[in-house]
């Protein structure tokens, strides 16, 4: 198991012995991982199990065995919506961008906000009151949209956006969700240098300002090295090593 930082803080997420196989292909092979505060990168060749790891951690796929602790709490087998909704929650983005295509940019981000009341009958009644939460939520969400240079497009529908803007919007949605840990699957893929810079700035700002931790998978080494606090390397379903520090060179 890779030791990441030397202090004794409890990791945000800690997984032990994760196994997952698909028809004889071992995607995760007794994987151990500790994710601490800050931005953690995961690199590795295709088929190393990075996306499977994301699916398992975010609840979209059940591990065959192993445990996942989120802030010390066992969360194995929780469905994704429960993982995302509970307090130190987990949100994720997807390799293939998944937006609410018919909703406006603003609404896309607002969906990610948690509303008071939960899922009780009373909670639903409260959420039915027309956009009462809006003013409070709006400021928060607009801040994120401005950061990602999407504020001028807030009334556009998601399907009208360009590829890069869609990528940014998906990130914005994750930033708006108040989850402790955010998993980003290839946030830099196919994005131009200016937008990469925007993404990096948004990530560091969220890390420093709102206590969010990130786990990133990407193949863009330069971007990963500039934004990640530490980088882990995965091979054949295991974490095989760690490199600490901003100028990390990926072995």
């Amino acid at each position: 198991m890779a030791t990441l930082l030397n202090d004794n803080r409890q990791p945000i997420l800690s997984a032990r012995g994760l196994r997952k196989r698909f028809d004889g292909v071992v995607a995760l092979d007794s994987l151990d991982i500790d994710i601490e505060d800050g931005i953690t990168g995961v690199v590795g060749p295709n088929g190393a199990g990075k996306t499977t790891l994301f699916d398992v951690l975010s609840g979209f796929s059940r591990p065959d065995s192993g445990t996942v602790l989120l802030c010390g709490r066992r969360v194995n087998g929780w469905p994704p919506h429960r993982l995302a909704r509970q307090h130190p929650g987990i949100t994720r983005s997807f390799q293939e961008i998944r937006l609410f295509e018919e909703l406006s940019v603003l609404d896309n981000v607002l969906v990610a906000r948690k509303f008071s009341g939960g899922t009780t009958v009373w909670g639903i009644m409260r959420r039915l009151t027309i956009r009462r939460e809006l003013r409070k939520e709006l400021n928060e969400v607009l801040k994120i949209l401005r950061l990602l240079e999407l504020a001028d497009l807030q009334q556009r529908r998601a399907h009208e956006l360009s590829y890069g803007q869609r990528k940014l919007l998906e990130l914005g949605r994750c930033l708006a969700a108040e989850s402790r840990l955010t998993l980003l699957d290839e946030p830099f893929a196919g994005v131009n240098p200016h937008m990469i810079e925007l993404i990096c700035r948004a990530l560091t700002k969220a890390r420093d300002g709102s206590q969010k931790a990130f786990l990133l998978v990407d193949h863009n080494r330069r971007a990963m090295e500039s934004v990640c606090d530490r980088i882990l390397r995965m091979e054949q379903g295991r974490v095989v090593g760690a490199v600490t520090g901003g100028q990390a060179h990926v072995a």
């Binding site: 979209f60 469905p79 919506h81 995302a84 909704r85 998944r98 609410f100 018919e102 969906v111 969700a177």
Partner: peptide
């Protein structure tokens, strides 16, 4: 809005805590 989010992309909605 959350109902329409489920309509547009159920998986994304789940990833954001919508059941």
């Amino acid at each position: 809005r959350q109902m329409m989010a489920v309509r547009d992309n159920e998986i994304a909605a789940m990833s954001l805590g919508v059941r």
